[in-house]
Design a protein around this nucleic acid. Structure first.
Lengths: 256, 256
DNA sequence: GTATCGCTCAATACACTGTATCGCGACGAG
DNA sequence: CTCGTCGCGATACAGTGTATTGAGCGATAC
C-alpha cells in the first residue's frame, strides 16, 4: 500500500513510553505543577507532558478538567489530619480550621477552588463528617440543623478568611514586598484616595495599624465564631445583642 | 498607486459605527453578559461584540482582562447600599452583610471574584470604610487592630458563606432540581458512601435535616460572629470557651 | 491648499486552552 | 493466520487573551 520506503517513515519510538498511569499519578503531577506556578500551570497538556504522555491520554482517567481539579482538592483534604474522635468540640474545630489554613499555605491554589463547587470526594466527606461529628449528639445542639448551622458558620469563616489572606499575600508579593513598600508602591492611587479625606478609618488602618501577623487575625476571627456558637448554645444565656437573629435555624418564611 | 479599480474594494462601511465607548459602558455590558451566562460569557471578544466594536478596542480603556473583572466587582459594590452613618454597629454590619448576599444573588458570578484578589476600587473602598467606621471610635475597640479583626471576621464569614451558598445552588440546578431529587440524582455514589456507615452524621444530614432555607443559615451564622464579637468586646465578660485564643489581636510570635 | 504628523481603531497573528474525532497499531479470540 | 477490538496518539476545531501591524482620518505646519 505505502509507496514510501521504510526509511522515509521515522522509526516509531519503539515503545515511546507507555508509562503506566493512574489517577493518583495524574493528580500528584497536577498538584506539583500547581504548587510551582499556580493553577495556570495546570493544563491538561502540561500535566500530561509531566507524565510523558499525550494530552488525550488523561481522558481515560478523567472526563473533564474540572474533575481533575476536584481530585486535587480532595487529595489535599487527605493531607489534613482529623482530630481524635473524642476531642472537645472547640479544639476539634480549631484543629480542623488550622489544618485547612496550613494546607492552603502549602497549596495556595487551593483557595481558588475552595467553595467554588461542592466537594464530595471521600476525603472531603470524611472531613465534613468529622466536623459535624464534633457537635452531633451534644444536648446543646438538639437537631441536626443546629449542628449544620454551627459547622457551616465555622467553615464559611475559614474559607473566607483563608481566601482573603492568600489573596492579599499574593497581591503583596506580586507587586512589591512588605506592606510598607506596598503602601508606597500601590501608593499613587491609594494616596490620592486617602488624601480625599473620605476614608479616615481606612487611613488609620494604612498608617497606624500594627499589621499584626495574619495568623493571629485568623485566630481571633475563629474564636469570635466559636464564642458565638458557644454562647448561643450554652443553656440559659443569650448574649446582649440587639439584633433579632433567631437563636437557632428554623424554617423561616422568607423564601429564596 | 493602486491598480485595482475602486469597485474592487468594498466600500468602507461609511462609518462602521464609531460607537463612543467608556469604561462605564464596557463594564455594564460585561455585567449584563455575566448575569446571563456566568463568567464564561465574559470574553473580551464577546463584550466588544456586544458594543459593536472590535476586541482590541477595549484595550484603550482597560489594560488587561483582570482589570475588567475588577471594574465589574467594584460596580456591583456600588449597587449595595451603605448604612446610615450613625447606625448601631450590629445592625450596620448586618445590613452590609445582607447587601452583599443580595448582590451575589443578583450577580452569581460575583462569588467567583469575591476575595480572589484585593478589591481597591472606589466603591469597594467606600464599603470597607463604612464597615470599619461602624466600630472605629467605640471604646470597646481600643485600637484599629481590634476593629480590623472584628470587621475582617465578619467579612470573611460573609464571603465564605455566600460563596458556599451560591456554589451549592449552582450545583443543584445544574444536575437536578430540589435536594430531594438531588439525593436520588447524585445518589449512586452518595448512597454507596453513606451505606458504608462511615458517615453517620452526614447521613443524618441527608435524610433528617429540614434543609432550612439558606437565608436562615446565613442569618444564624452571621449572628454567631456578631455575638462572638459582642461578647469579647463587652467590658467584663469573657465567654466560657476553653480554647486559648487571645482576646484581641496582638503581635504573636508564630510567624507566617 | 497641501503635506505631514500622529492617533485611533480594526485586522491579523500567535501561543495556548479544553476537548471531539479519527485512524493506526498492538493484542487477544477463533 | 486472520479478524475484531480497543487503547492511545495525532490531528483538528473553536475559542481564549493579547502583541503587532497597518490603514484611515483629523489636525497642524507651511
Amino acid at each position: 500500500m505505502s509507496n514510501e520506503l521504510v526509511w522515509d517513515r521515522p522509526e516509531p519510538p519503539s515503545k515511546p513510553s507507555p508509562t503506566p498511569l493512574s489517577r493518583e499519578l495524574i493528580v500528584t503531577a497536577a498538584i506539583r505543577l500547581a504548587d510551582g506556578g499556580g493553577l495556570d500551570e495546570v493544563s491538561l497538556r502540561k500535566v500530561a507532558a509531566a507524565l510523558n504522555a499525550g494530552p488525550m491520554r488523561l481522558y481515560g482517567y478523567i472526563e473533564t478538567k474540572d474533575e481533575l481539579l476536584d481530585l486535587m482538592v480532595d487529595e489535599v483534604y487527605g493531607e489534613i489530619a482529623l482530630p481524635e474522635p473524642g476531642t472537645e468540640w472547640r479544639s476539634a474545630l480549631t484543629q480542623i480550621a488550622h489544618g485547612i489554613r496550613a494546607a492552603a499555605k502549602r497549596h495556595p491554589w487551593l483557595v481558588d477552588l475552595l467553595g467554588g463547587r461542592p466537594h464530595r470526594g471521600p476525603n472531603s466527606l470524611a472531613h465534613i463528617e468529622a466536623s459535624l461529628g464534633t457537635l452531633d449528639g451534644k444536648p446543646e445542639f438538639p437537631t441536626i440543623d443546629h449542628v449544620l448551622g454551627a459547622v457551616g458558620a465555622v467553615m464559611a469563616f475559614v474559607h473566607g478568611a483563608v481566601r482573603n489572606e492568600i489573596a492579599e499575600a499574593r497581591a503583596e508579593q506580586s507587586s512589591g514586598m512588605t506592606e510598607e513598600q506596598w503602601q508606597a508602591a500601590s501608593g499613587p492611587y491609594m494616596q490620592r484616595m486617602l488624601a480625599t479625606g473620605k476614608f479616615p478609618t481606612l487611613a488609620k488602618v494604612m498608617y497606624d495599624a500594627e499589621h499584626t501577623n495574619a495568623a493571629s487575625y485568623f485566630d481571633t476571627g475563629l474564636s469570635y465564631v466559636l464564642d458565638g456558637i458557644a454562647t448561643r448554645h450554652t443553656p440559659g444565656s443569650t448574649p446582649g445583642g440587639s439584633a433579632s437573629a433567631p437563636s437557632a435555624p428554623s424554617a423561616a418564611p422568607a423564601g429564596r
